[in-house]
Nucleic acid binder design. Structure first.
Lengths: 221, 221
DNA sequence: CTATTGTATATTGGATCCAATCTGAGTAAA
DNA sequence: TTTACTCAGATTGGATCCAATATACAATAG
């Protein structure tokens, strides 16, 4: 008898699971900036020893999501307003270029997918889901760029500021503006106007940045 | 009595030392692509247990310098020609923008430093040092941009392709062309012409990319 | 009462040990 | 000859134990 060789999805290691869970918690804001991540505590939560936890923390540190001081421990990274601003400036540069590359490669399927996220975004009442839908919308367009490295960097830079971006969407009128801007971006993509899509994406990110830094400065005062 | 409070430089952890050593070996090409990194072997080389080695390998994996398969091990990452090309395309985008931001902030000290690296580059006979001098030249200019996040990404993307870039400098006429292009970039910076410096930097990186991909395609045939 | 010192506890970093899995040589069967 | 199978060694992943350091708090001197 000959069986199909099934590509058994190799189960993730404990370290991978811990890493993904912590990453998600940080970018969603479930873990606040400055919060102390105790190895022991996390290990108990995941029913493992501290070893996989430590590997996960090292990976998070490499991504800039946490910082570690020897013998003191690991805390969720906090960004200054200047740092947030710089990362948004960076995103504006990369993401506008990525969408410029994506537009000529967009097909009907992807456009439909993006339109779906657009509608989800407009129809979703629960603010805790806006951040994820926002990401999905942009990614569904960016994916067409066929630039895996660029997309990885986009993901990494967005990870760092996602907590702040979610706050901005929720706590200001960011959601309303984002919706309008998304529609304009989508229209430019549907028309095949890459330069306009790039220009609008850049403006969209810088708009969010201005709104967010104003909000942060207010908060801190 | 009052003593000067000296900032005792906290000794790096074993994991940090291993990480830096392996990183250096990979970007310099001392460890070839595809090479298997055995935890045990590395641990012995550094006189430690495997624990810090594993943490270092996790960090390298996060940076894309190595890849890991569960229970199989960690190997030095190998990039396809397409991947190398994409990373150079990315670098052209970022580094041209970084130097545009840097030019208006360049002062005499930094320009002198860059000129020094330029002369080092021209005068150095040992090809194994060209890669590092090349990096130093560009960094001394980029540093003025005052964009720590951008610089970190520049470092990370260059790390991934540095092995290949060094090969291109050494094994083709890349060195000669790089020297000419560096001089042109430096002149534009010294004149304060940010747009021209950005344009030349972009061309410099894309030129190296073309030369390198041609070289790699030849090699693989 | 305050500042300094000593000490106990908590926490992290690293070493050693055990379990899970891969790999490859050797063997048997078609 | 070739293919499948078995088993031993090698290697990785994870658990447990020990060492180094930090932190909080009590004790003591001024």
């Amino acid at each position: 008898m000959k069986l199909e060789t099934i590509d058994v999805r190799q189960s993730a290691s404990a370290a991978d699971l811990v890493f993904e869970a912590l990453r998600k918690a940080i970018i969603e804001g479930a873990l606040a900036g400055g919060e102390h991540l105790r190895q022991d505590h996390i290990a108990q939560m995941f029913n493992t020893s501290r070893i996989p936890v430590r590997e996960a923390l090292k990976r998070l540190e490499q991504d800039g999501l946490v910082t570690n001081e020897r013998y003191k421990g690991t805390v969720v990274a906090e960004l200054s307003t200047a740092e947030v601003e710089e990362i948004f400036e960076f995103r504006a540069l990369i993401e506008s270029e990525v969408i410029r590359l994506a537009v000529p490669r967009l097909d009907a399927r992807r456009l439909d997918e993006a339109r779906g996220h657009l509608e989800d975004f407009a129809g979703e009442a629960d603010p805790s889901l806006w951040g994820t839908i926002n990401r999905n919308f942009h990614y569904s367009l960016y994916a067409a760029s066929e630039r895996p490295y660029h997309l990885q960097i986009v993901r990494s830079s967005l990870d760092r500021v996602d907590r702040y971006l979610r706050a901005q969407l929720t706590l200001t009128d960011g959601m309303r503006r984002a919706r309008q801007e998304h529609e304009a971006i989508f229209d430019a993509c549907a028309r095949g106007d890459a330069d306009e899509a790039a220009r609008l994406t850049r403006a969209h990110i810088l708009d969010a940045s201005r709104s967010l830094t104003a909000f942060l400065e207010n908060r801190r005062r």
